[in-house]
Amino acid sequence: MPQILSAKFIAPNIKRFDILSPKIAQRRKPGQFVIIRIDESGERIPLTIADSNNENGTITIIVQAVGRTTMELNMLEAGDTILDVVGPLGKPSEIEKFGNAVSIGGGVGTAIAYPTAVALKQAGNHTISIIGGRSKEFVILEDEMRNVCDEVYVTTDDGSYGKKGFVTDQLKELILHKKIDFVLAIGPIPMMKAVAEVTRDKNIKTVVSLNPIMVDGTGMCGGCRATVDNKTVFVCVDGPEFDAHKVDFETLDRRNRTYLMDEKISLEKFQCESEKHFQRK
């Protein structure tokens, strides 16, 4: 069972874990993910590998607590183990020397954009990063991005840090001043959609990373299917990265809501149980 070597919150509700998994650490490429299951009754959820360290044999995942499983995960500490970790899954990001390459991360999406930003830099791109967050405390990985990128911009919805506004405002401004050759956008669906709209008529190659509901992660179930270029794709094996201008975001968003009610039931049950647990303690 893979062990957690370090676990710390980097923003409210967002925790960074280094997990011992030498083989995956050695193999993984930017853009790939793992599927984890915390315990015997747990569900399988995909998480992007944000980073890895070959010396320690660890992979890094960054988790925002939004539902039951992520909440349960974020209660784990260094020394705890995770029952199942399988990976690396999915196709690696297609990295080229594009020229001026912008990586945009919204919220926890920055964690997913980070490894690709590193790879873009290594491939010789002039690498620009836009980090977006609701407010100051939700801006993550700024130092890491500054270490690898040539330019870093921060936007917050409420203006509590960086520039007030959305990542798209910053992107539009960049496009005005510079020839942008490539955009990677990862974050909530509305954000990715908005970025796609900004770059569409400008013909800027734009890639997004999709986050459908998954089960096996190996192309066996088809649960992760999405519509891209009017065709059905299995995101876990055909992606997760796709041409933003061809993705049907409405279908993705709608399919992601399939279990909304169950997620609520599951979460409430978990909160109720953990309360009882703490009361007993």
Partner: peptide, 28 residues
């Protein structure tokens, strides 16, 4: 791709492997 349409593999995997018939005791 409407919600509520499954492949047999997904439906069976959810129920048999992930024990969705015991939801919410099992998370899936």
């Amino acid at each position: 791709n409407l919600n509520g349409v499954y492949s047999s593999n997904e439906f069976l995997t959810r129920v048999n492997l992930m024990k969705a018939y015991q939801f919410p005791d099992y998370d899936t």
